[in-house]
Nucleic acid binder design. Sequence first.
DNA 1: GCGTTTCGATACCTTCAGAGTATCAAAAAT
DNA 2: ATTTTTGATACTCTGAAGGTATCGAAACGC
Lengths: 297, 297
Amino acid sequence: MDLRHLRYFAAVAATEHVGRAAAGLGIAQPPLSRAIRALESELGVALFERGARGVRLSPAGAALLPEARRLLRDAEAFRTGARQFASGEAGTLAIGFVSTAAYNVLPRLLPRFRARRPGVRVVLREATSDVQPPALVAGDLDLGFLIPSTGDPALAYLPVHRERLIAALPAGRRWPAVPDARRLAREPLILFPRAVAPSLHDAVLGWCRQGGVEPSIEQEAIQMQTIVSLVAAGMGISLVPASLAHLKRTGVVYRPLDGGGPTVSIALAWRRADDSPLTRAFVGEARGLFRTDGSPT
Amino acid sequence: MDLRHLRYFAAVAATEHVGRAAAGLGIAQPPLSRAIRALESELGVALFERGARGVRLSPAGAALLPEARRLLRDAEAFRTGARQFASGEAGTLAIGFVSTAAYNVLPRLLPRFRARRPGVRVVLREATSDVQPPALVAGDLDLGFLIPSTGDPALAYLPVHRERLIAALPAGRRWPAVPDARRLAREPLILFPRAVAPSLHDAVLGWCRQGGVEPSIEQEAIQMQTIVSLVAAGMGISLVPASLAHLKRTGVVYRPLDGGGPTVSIALAWRRADDSPLTRAFVGEARGLFRTDGSPT
DNA sequence: GCGTTTCGATACCTTCAGAGTATCAAAAAT
DNA sequence: ATTTTTGATACTCTGAAGGTATCGAAACGC
């Protein structure tokens, strides 16, 4: 038994006329006659009652016809489903992101993408910039929003966001409106471990040294929230992306940095070899949305 | 796309090994490799990821596999359903019966048949003996319990029941314990119209004439219940099948007839050309149950 | 590090199912 | 009675699916 047989069965049942059904199927009448008889013989049951005036469904045929139609519909749905995967209308994207991206990039990009591809399941996973490249290469992630450092040759990068760093300072003390490096170097600095985000780390230290001072790193913390909490606790100061200012935590004040301060950039990364239509669609969406990159916010 | 392709897909997915899957399918490895590739090419999506150590399901393949399995299961169910129709395990039987049969024959036969063929839908339709033969020939009925008269050559008959007639008499008067024809001929007779059940009609009149009297038919009624009601109303007397005595209606008494009385037989009839396994099974069941026919009850 | 093994892919051949053309047979319509 | 309608049959041919032999790449083992 074959889907074609069922298709023939349904066609003949619909017309109750072998010749017309054959024409509708785009084949000649004799093969259709034979196919129906072969199906009946295989199933061991007469699907039609032959009269001189065409054919009519037998009781068994009438009972089996809806089943056959359902099978054909399901087969069509299977094809459609496969086509959706092929075209990227359906599927799953595993996307990594650094916490910073959750404040600015993701809220702008994800709703647009989900609206355009409603069938795609997006799995978000927060991960630091150091673990994302290996995860991408291994295939555990399809896309990653990260702070790029040494570019992995297997990955492609698209800069999607660049923002200035601002100072996060414990409230309750007097701070300059626009503190400079020399002033801030007097305070203990709380920062990401260098291994987790080398470029952010280096940007902060470079800005301080440009101001002629060497900061003392007192604490390291991985989560942005943790850093802000430590600042609130008076453990020290930190330089954080400007969008963090949205996180209005009591005990913390934010100040723009003298001279604008260093910038940190977030890039979208994916496997260069990844030709999945989903990945390409997502990158395309990002490219369209963040065309005006490079300008610090 | 074809059910075979889906079967191959499911087999390879199950083993994650083309060679072993091919062995399980009873074909060689190269055709299976080609078939899978052809399916992927047709669907436009990679179902497997090829490694040096075998194949693994791609995300699309993993998503489509349950669908494919369901399709295969449904196709199998279709075959099974067809086989049930072929073997008579499923289907519908339209069975006609005269009201007399409802008191004796049907209650004995139907439960047995339904227990043996639980998948068969039995549609019962009460009909007099004169309308059943044409309905059987036309295919409106598959089987009929009727009082046979002139046998239709297109029908086959199996006697399933023979019972004596007894007198149904209005209560409130004195009746002999075993009335004879002469006594009963003094009363107006209520009977079926001859056209509806000629043999019953003739049996009654024959018995009366054998007793040397000619009865006067005052009323005709088609339903047995109606006849009994008319007797209860004092409109006359009737001769009814013995099993009607179960119908204890106030105002009616039953008496066995002198000399045993005439007998009426019920037969099962069906199209001689009907080779449906259902019909044959039902007839077989009846033949087994009513092997000891011919003996009047 | 180099043979060996494993496993899917490719090349080429063969066979049979399914499609086509021509025609028949039966029953209904005229 | 003849024509028309409609499915069934006979026969041929093509192509898809299967088989055998073999390749090529990657992993394994000594």
